[in-house]
Amino acid sequence: MAYVIRRLLMTIPVLLGVIFITFAIIKVTPGDPVQLMLGQRATAARVAELRLQLGLDDPLLVQYGRYVLNAARGNLGTSIRSQTPVLQEIMLRVPSTLELTTAALLLSVLVGIPAGVIAATHGSRVLNQVINVLALIGLSIPGYWLGIISLSFFAVELNWVSVLGGEGIKDLILPAIALGLPSAALFMRLTRNTMLEALGSDYVRTARAKGLPDYLVVWKHVFRNAMIPIITALGLQTGALLGGTVLIESVFARPGLGRYAVTAILNRDFPQVQGMILFSAVVYVVLNLIVDLTYVVIDPRVRRS
């Protein structure tokens, strides 16, 4: 329990640091950020008004404190363009991104881990070579390119899915593949390597010597031990997949958080950018927390340390 509390407290400086970085963004922006947001033709009066509204004339620490307090109450400011509360805009886009990331994660786990287990346990030379080449392709192919090419084939040529922003399950398949392929390759490599390492260890030899059937050795001993690095990777990959939505949502014109981040930056809508970054950081911190707490459950050694 002490570990859990300590781990929870550790997230506070991280989040304060992230907010500080989002603040630094506005400070280091060359030129007046307000002028940038409003465009060159904005009147001096309008610029002054917005500066006042955003509190940009206050000392930096006051602004920072105010932002932290507001954020803690769930107020991430109001978008300059749409005049809508940023948190509301973000929440509107969460389901789409969540759907895509979950689909990509499921796909990469369901393809990557079994492929890794097969490669480690039944690996003939040819099969291993094939899996190696597939992993290399998976890790090297630009997902956004795969997305464009698959869209032009399945949507334009075959008319199986809609070209832009389809909402159905069918329209989730291509983006999930484009987003999840590198992760699948990574899980495959990782599972194979950790399984091979575990297969060569002493306790496996003991288990075999006891006369345990092969499937029990693999699933009860080897796979369970190989799970620890895989769970670490699971947390990291979920973060990477969320980051990947920035590119993939643009390919498929999906109305999610990634696309939102890009347009916020292109429009230089700073409240949107700040809110978006803080929100993602919170999600990421929570993800890391879940991963660390999972260790406590599956690895008794962590509990004791």
Partner: peptide, 21 residues
């Protein structure tokens, strides 16, 4: 630790937001 605590892409996007695309 703080820099690694949130995804690389966010750090990149923060810098792009600051310096312009």
């Amino acid at each position: 630790e703080i820099m690694l605590a949130f995804p690389t892409i966010l750090l990149v996007l923060s810098i792009v937001a600051a310096l312009g695309p």
